[in-house]
Structures are given as C-alpha cells and as structure tokens.
Design a protein around this nucleic acid. Structure first.
Lengths: 259, 259
DNA sequence: CAAATACTTCGGTCAAGACCGTAGTGTTTC
DNA sequence: GAAACACTACGGTCTTGACCGAAGTATTTG
C-alpha cells in the first residue's frame, strides 16, 4: 500500500551486483544478448537467465526474441535515468573515500550516456556553449539562444528532427566529473554529429568513446577545447568477447566463482 | 572498478523494505528522529538503528544530533530524485497489474514531493498553466513566459527568491498520475503560496495534503480546476505517533514481527 | 542521584536468494 | 538427422543480512 515497498522491490532488483552490471552495460542504449550479459556480469548463463527473467518481469528490461537468441535492452529512458541517478548518489555518497577513479580513464574522458555524450569532453563542450551564451543552463533546465541556434546551423547540426516529442535540452549530471553535460535532443544531436564526422569512435564492447585525430582538431577549432586524453591514460577494459562470440572457456575464465 | 557494483551498493541499500519506507517518509524533505523512522518502517528501534547507520555511512542520509535524539533527512536532492525515479519505474514496471492504487486516495489527490506539490491537483495546475501559455514545458525543461510572469505577480507569488542557485522550473513526472507536474523554484513557490494562504494543509505524519474549503474556491477561480477530492476517497493512514511521542506500546503494535 | 528517554552494540536465529551442475527445450547449421 | 548453439528449468548448497531480545552508553528530567 505504502510507496516504500514498491520502490524497494525495484531497488532490490538493481541492488544485486550481477544485475547491476547487466543494467550498466545496457545504459548506453545498446541491445545485448543473454550470453553477452552473462559475460559482462560475471556469472554463469543459467544464473544470468534467472536474473534477466526477473528484470524483464519487473519491466526494467525489454526483450526481443530473434532466432535462438534473446536481445535485451533497457525498457525505458526512465530506467536509464534512475541508473544515472544512482551513480551520482554513489559518487557523492561516502564522503570519505572520494578518490576519483583509478582506471576507467577512457571512460572518464569520453563515453556515451544513453544517447548523448558524457565525460570530460562532454562537460567541456557544455561549458563552452554556456560560456559563449549559446545555451542558457540552470540546474535542470536548458534552452538554446538565437546565437546558439545559428551556431549549430553553421556547424551543420540538425536540430529540427528532435523538437517534437523529445526533450529539447537538459543538463545531465556527469557522475565522473560531477558537473553537468548536455542531454536531451541537443545532446543527442551533438553525439550524432561527432560520430558521423568521425570526431569520436565507439570502443568495442564498451560505452567508452575515443577521440580521433580529426576530433582533436575539430574540437579545438569548434569549441576551443583539448580533445586528446591525458598521456597516462591507459586502461584495458575487460576481455575479448571476440567478434560477438562467447566461448564457454571465456565465460569460465571470467567467472570468479561465488561472490 | 566497473560502475555496476557501485550502483548495486546504493540500490541494495534502498532495496530493503524497511529502509525504503524510511527514505519514503523523508521524501518530502522533513527531518525525522530515529524512533519515528523505526515506527514508519515497522521495525524495532535496534533494527532501525542499524539501517540508519548504513544509510548515513553511504551518504544517503544526513544526520544532526540534538540532545538525545538524532534527526535524519535525505542527504541531497539527488537522493530524492532517485527515489522519485524508482517510483516511476515501479509504476510503469509490471505492465500487467497496473491497477492504479486502491487506497492512498488522499495521496493521489495532493501531496508534497520533496519541496513542491504533486498528485492530481498539481498535475491539473501544471496543465492549466501550460494551456494558458504561462509556462512552456517539454519533457524535462520548462520556462516561464512573460504572461506567466505577470500572472504569478498578480497572484502574489514571489519568484525572485528562487532564481539564483536553484533550478527555476522543471517538470517532475508524477508517479501516481503518470503525467508531469511542476518542480523547481516555481513548483516550490506554488506550494509555499498554497500553504501560506491555507489552500492546502499538511496531513499529520504523512506527505499528503488536504485541500481546504478556501483552497477549493481559490483553485477554481485561479486555475479553473476542481479542488475537491472524489467522494469515495477515504483512507486512514497508519496509527498515531501522537504529538511526536512514541510509546513502546505503539511501536509494539505496529511492528508485525518478522517480515 | 535515580528514573526515564533515545539510541547503539552484541549475539544468535532464521529466511531469502545467488550460485552452479545437470538436464532439459527450441533453433540453426552442416 | 546429427551436432552445435542459445537459452531455460530444477535441485541442492551456502552466504548474506534482516530481525529481535538483552544489555549498554549518552542525555535529559525530577
């Protein structure tokens, strides 16, 4: 009856490490198969199957069968929103050990966040756009100025697609930088543009983005920001999952047994 | 290293029914004592103590000692945001049994949501303001028009306080109505105004609001909406906690033993 | 100081559920 | 049709942690 139990049920679902890993892996809007999710979550396929059933039943995941595999994705942007929120809270939480992330340098630098860009680069872009008065941003509302509109026009970013049903512009608190970057239609359009013009590329099996040489140049001329990651930034993400193929051995070696 | 475990930790914390009840009780921004929280969560004080320690350690709750009691409140609006998000997801979740809440009629009608109003009334107000073009609202950004500004001026709602650090206007998805109401400084100002002019009153020990006769009249003239709740709406919320005093007996009778 | 209040610590019980091995069912490939 | 593959169902083990009774530490009241 009370509202507590309901949110507890959902939160408990997210509160298992294996399931949280699955959801995290889906946060950029991709769809992954049950096997892939078993792999990233570090559990055996049987176990993963159970988890996925629960998540689907609860409406956190949407399921599409295709031949002998099942593709999962987050059921709605609301779910992504909650996950982002949890990250923010998790970051600000234990005030003591707020060490800003060894490892994950690539992720901190640039990554996708559901359908837009996040990380150091994204925050820098948002900063620049605000500083130039192209966008007015307060804690959770944003709007484009006329100057901004022509800026994006000249850049060749098409904002017309978006306007209707979609949020036009909103800030999204970056959990690694703890400052806002741009989400909404504008954020999505920027990411599209960046991918299309090879400013950035997806890193395989991750939501990390790498800035290409083209990107470094263009980010500098367009936004006056340094696109290259710091030199010491190297982190190899987990194993292979080579070519979408998951061998039993790979699963075995990735699974550390009981947690 | 990965982000999964971090969000799992926070989510697991929220995922316990007792703790979720505590957090829910704090969602309107009140501060409550450990005993009160033990009561609303339906567990013994010893158990509650443990829960509260965990929530504080994790940075979800802020703690203020005062004499022999300890006052708890949500540590940040981000926490409230996550809880709201979980409610939304919990509502949209099990697509099957989306029965819109027996009981909690009062809550569905009008309640506080952290620092602004929510529920049927709040959604109606938002609708009206949008319909009159006093506010432009898309899915998660909002802004006041000039007409809107003078509307609030005439009404005597002071919006100047807010502008600086605070979000000015944003929509907040109402988990009972599943449509947006107004949050941000504007939302807060409206709630302030409504409370100050006796349009609504807090219901004891709950975040429910009741619309007064004055409120019914004023809501009709100001917004053209029906402020009275449906006739069949009766739900008695839990027990007493009379006058801030929690007797051992009250705790006993409210505690249903093992869950 | 004694009694009452507010909260915490400790210890032991108990249920929930995460995990995997084994053994299935569907689907595709050869 | 046989073999490989993707996923699911079942059964048993084992850890985690929620719970409360009893006892202990601060703080206020009389």
């Amino acid at each position: 009856m009370d509202t507590g139990p309901k949110i507890a049920q959902v939160a408990a679902l997210i509160g298992d490490p294996a399931r949280a890993n699955m959801l995290s892996a889906l946060m950029d809007g991709r769809t992954l198969t049950a096997s892939e999710l078993a792999y990233v979550s570090g559990v055996a396929p049987q176990t993963a199957s159970g988890h996925l059933a629960k998540l689907s039943d609860a409406g956190l995941l949407a399921l599409a069968k295709q031949g002998r595999r099942r593709y999962f994705r987050l059921a709605s942007p609301h779910v992504a929103r909650v996950l982002e929120g949890l990250m923010v809270v998790a970051q600000e939480g234990p005030a003591r050990q707020r060490n800003l992330w060894r490892g994950g340098e690539t992720l901190r630098h640039a990554r996708t966040c559901y359908d837009h860009m996040a990380g150091r680069i994204a925050v820098a872009i948002a900063d620049r756009l605000v500083q130039q008065s192209f966008i007015l941003l307060d804690e959770d509302g944003g709007q484009l100025t006329d100057a901004g509109r022509s800026f994006f026009d000249e850049l060749g970013v098409d904002l017309r697609l978006a306007s209707k049903r979609r949020v036009f512009c909103r800030p999204c608190l970056d959990w690694s930088e703890r400052r806002p970057h741009l989400a909404g239609a504008v954020g999505a359009a920027i990411l599209d543009h960046a991918l299309e013009h090879d400013w950035v590329e997806h890193v395989r099996d991750s939501r990390a983005l790498v800035v290409t040489p083209v990107g470094v140049r263009e980010l500098a001329t367009t936004f006056g920001i340094e696109g290259a990651p710091p030199m010491d930034g190297h982190d190899r993400r987990v194993g292979s999952l080579s070519g979408g193929r998951v061998s039993a051995i790979a699963v075995e070696s990735a699974s550390p047994g009981r947690r």
